[in-house]
Design a protein around this nucleic acid. Structure first.
Lengths: 142, 142
DNA sequence: ATCGCTGCAAACGGTTTGCAACCTG
DNA sequence: CAGGTTGCAAACCGTTTGCAGCGAT
């Protein structure tokens, strides 16, 4: 989870401008633990910037991902989600309520050293995702 | 990889009709190792059934997934892809050409026993995905 | 004859694009 | 002051929906 001064520095290095909109979107992501979609970010920041356009949100999210400030999360084919937690971790996705939970599993960490040379594939990143039922949904089902 | 007679039997049990379109879509998936999208399946089967509609393709792919004959593969947020290989395995996705390769990794197999009780999460399935460069793209880059 | 399946066309929802006006560095 | 950024609106693309007609049991 990076801070605003760090973001400011990164923007300066990259020569991109740190506009109020970008700051607002970044802060929204930091405060939002729930892996929001672009649309959700748009709706939240819209309250502060009534003229905000969705194009700006998409541009900014892409920029933040390039800077390594946020991670794109793909759990379904419909929409991209964003995670301000850029530390190595995995996701547990509830098949009922579709909530996404950050988890940390040792066995998954070991996977990062996986060698796929026999397949002629150079691994750069590993994604692990668990699907199942979160506690509230498991309780509701019983 | 299931066979047509097995599919026929499953359909009979479920009480759904095995139409020529469904057979054609199923065969397309079996022959197609490249994890095709619905659109790609549609285009290929269209050659044999010029009146085929995309709705039928989507319906059939959903049905086949329910029957356990194919697996849905989510590698990007744009489109759903389908895999006729329903055996446990992982995917290696090339960030350059976006090709999807089936791989099998022991360490990933071990992940299936992961216990997320401390998170209050009941694991039902685990997905592992490697991102990197396939051999042709790595060669082209060098 | 019934009930499910198909084909068609329109709707839908997230994302992208082009461009003129604007504002940051 | 220049060039990146914004806002707007329309386009895009994969997917879904409603419905009339068809076909298998």
């Amino acid at each position: 989870m990076l801070t605003l001064p760090e973001l400011r520095e990164k923007c300066r290095q990259r020569g991109v401008k740190l506009t109020p909109q970008r700051i607002a979107i970044f802060e929204c992501l930091i405060q939002h633990a729930g892996h929001p979609s672009a649309e959700e970010v748009y709706q939240e920041v819209l309250a502060r910037y009534p003229t905000l356009s969705c194009a700006t949100v998409y541009n900014t999210l892409e920029l933040l991902a390039e800077l390594g400030e946020v991670r794109e999360v793909i759990v379904d084919e419909l929409r991209r989600r964003y995670d301000a937690n850029v530390e190595p971790h995995q996701h547990a996705v509830c098949r009922q309520c579709h909530r996404i939970m950050d988890v940390e599993v040792d066995a998954a960490t070991a996977l990062r050293q996986t060698d796929l040379q026999t397949y002629g594939f150079a691994v750069e990143a590993v994604t692990v995702q668990f699907t199942g039922l979160c506690a509230p949904c498991a309780a509701a089902a019983a």
